[in-house]
């Protein structure tokens, strides 16, 4: 699996940074320790403002889903959020079947995700 956590975007209308973590490949228990570390580092750099770009992920198992839930909680504990984006169809369906599509904020693309984070930020 490929993990890219270096990219930083600026939220629209603010100077605040958002970390974009890009994932690609099969997201299962073998990958969880690496992804968890990447999400934690990303959240620590941006006070919890994280976008997870799942555009390259073609399968996610229950441990991968649990890892994303933990990442979301970590961000929310810091008063911000973790937004998912670019879900491929199989991954979107897996989120629906596990009903986790209701728990996460899911955006179509990175730009939409950062806009959503900015809107949430302005409400706080």
């Amino acid at each position: 699996m490929q993990i890219n956590l270096q990219q930083l975007e600026t939220m629209p209308g603010t100077e605040q940074a958002v970390a974009v973590v890009g994932l690609a490949g099969r997201f299962d228990a073998h990958e969880v320790p690496h992804v968890r570390q990447a999400l934690t580092q990303a959240a620590d750099r941006t006070e919890g403002r994280v976008v997870v770009d799942l555009g390259g992920v073609n399968f996610i198992d229950s441990s991968g889903l649990a890892c994303l839930v933990q990442g979301m909680k970590y961000c929310r504990e810091r008063g911000a959020d973790q937004i998912l984006c670019n879900l491929q169809q199989p991954v979107r369906i897996i989120f629906e079947l596990t009903r986790l599509d209701r728990a996460f904020k899911i955006a179509g693309c990175v730009e939409e995700a950062t806009t959503t984070l900015a809107a949430r930020n302005s409400q706080n």
Binding site: N58, D61, S62, Q89, P90, I93, T98
Partner: peptide, 14 residues
């Protein structure tokens, strides 16, 4: 119970 729903999702999608 922990593994089958993601597998069904992937199969049904494809």
């Amino acid at each position: 119970e922990m593994r089958i729903i993601p597998t069904i999702g992937a199969i049904a999608s494809h």
